[in-house]
Design a protein around this nucleic acid. Structure first.
Lengths: 250, 250
DNA sequence: CGCAAAGTTGAGGGATATCAACGAGTGTGG
DNA sequence: CCACACTCGTTGATATCCCTCAACTTTGCG
């Protein structure tokens, strides 16, 4: 369930050359939950799929801005890399999420997207999307919504980083991740953490040790069950209580 | 310079009724630094201006999503309010910035925008903007850029919250604020903090005491000069060094 | 099997929140 | 114009949380 990626995928390789699979506009819309009500859609437009091996970067910070990407399967980490070598994980996008939106303004990507498992993305040339959007109100609205959704998500993250203590952050992360899986049709109480403790720590503004300790304590308290990357949420209510223990918020 | 708002403005009142001033599309584009190269622009479209008194909210969390707002003058604080009463300042938008973008997705505002001084905004009905965007590639690109710019800014903020220590955060804030003033034609080394220490603390994920202490220490060290809300940056290089003192980043 | 990366756990200290008292600025009403 | 109250800001003492350093175990992989 959580690992549909078989060894076949890996052998298929990095180059999407051989069977350059693609998605129709309707399929893309379905993936992203857009309703293409009405609108004179040219069904011939198609979006090329690209496979990304675990550990490979879909794009790197500083690359010229090109397409944006809709994740079809897999998980990524989105990382902000400063010239000084600073390293900040900004999120863990997964299927139905869109990558690369941050490059629009500066015309080059400001972040790097690394696959945490073998993944597959649909390549969406941004100019083409904009053109299609001009004809279809629904599509245009959709791009706006994508961006707006991302903003809202980052607001939540700023709240998490700004006003929660370490354990609250970890608890909130687990609950939010559960919701994201639920929205995709998976269990919201049993899932795998695809990222390392280090990446999780970076995302949550904590060290890996603190993350590890928080998880251990939740486990001991019976709120969750952790074994390596496998997590099972046993007492979501308890986790919510822990989140409510904000530090310096009113 | 930093306080063009006179007592007259205040008497003009909250209701934009009397002289319902407005901005033409060209004026709006100039304010937001958009180039309307070519494109068949209907010059009759105009955008109503609205005054917002200090301390008044432009919109509140939960309000039905309506227009977005381009700030013409003044400063706001953008606050995320949770049902639990949690309070997180997300930013301090000022002239040329746009407010309300986060409401697009959920169709209601998730945050609240409060004026930190008497301010003036242009009301942009979002559907109208989308319609105009459909006709003009430049305008459409612009909306995308607005959203993308906001994303990039919040990435910076997540980096700040996730990997910097208290003094580094305050130093980074001062430098970034200076840049923002510079881009608007003001001094980047001498400006006023329009927000309280409490709001600043919320924004930076610190308590007001810690913010105060950091500023005092920078002052004593000769890097800046603070008197109440007035700040003068004397040694930007020093501030940059302090920022470089990241906590747990590589 | 052996190595490297990832994760866990413990001890200790430093950074920052908390609590508390005070000072300064601001607006209000007498 | 001053007294008052209130918010805002500063500073100090103390407590606490989490980072740092370190050792060890486990997992993954060639």
């Amino acid at each position: 369930m959580q690992q549909q990626v078989t060894s076949l995928d890996r052998q298929a390789g990095d180059q999407a050359a051989s069977r350059a699979a693609s998605l129709s506009l309707n399929q893309l819309a379905a993936l992203l939950n857009i309703s293409l009500d009405g609108a004179n859609i040219d069904q011939r437009v198609s979006f090329t799929l690209r496979r990304v091996q675990q550990g490979m970067a879909l794009y790197r910070a500083g690359d010229q801005f090109g397409p944006i990407y809709a994740i079809r399967s897999g998980t990524f980490k989105n990382v902000l890399l400063d010239a000084n070598g600073s390293y900040q994980v900004l999120g863990f996008p997964m299927a139905s999420d869109v990558l690369g939106l941050d490059g629009i303004e500066a015309q080059h990507y400001r972040t790097e997207a690394v696959a945490l498992e073998d993944s597959e993305v649909a390549i969406i040339p941004f100019p083409r999307l904009a053109r299609l959007g001009g004809k279809s109100g629904a599509l245009q609205q959709f791009v706006y919504r994508l961006l707006s959704r991302q903003l809202a998500r980052e607001h939540t993250q700023m709240w998490l980083l700004g006003s929660l203590g370490a354990e609250s952050r970890v608890a909130a992360f687990l609950l939010i991740l559960g919701e994201r899986y639920a929205r995709r049709g998976y269990s919201d109480t049993r899932f795998n953490l695809r990222m390392t403790r280090l990446d999780l720590g970076s995302f949550l503004g904590l060290t890996q040790e603190t993350v590890s300790r928080a998880l251990s304590r939740f486990d001991q308290a019976g709120a969750i069950q952790v074994r390596n990357k496998e997590v099972r949420i046993l007492d979501a209510k308890r986790l919510h209580q822990i989140v409510a223990h904000a530090r310096h918020a009113s």
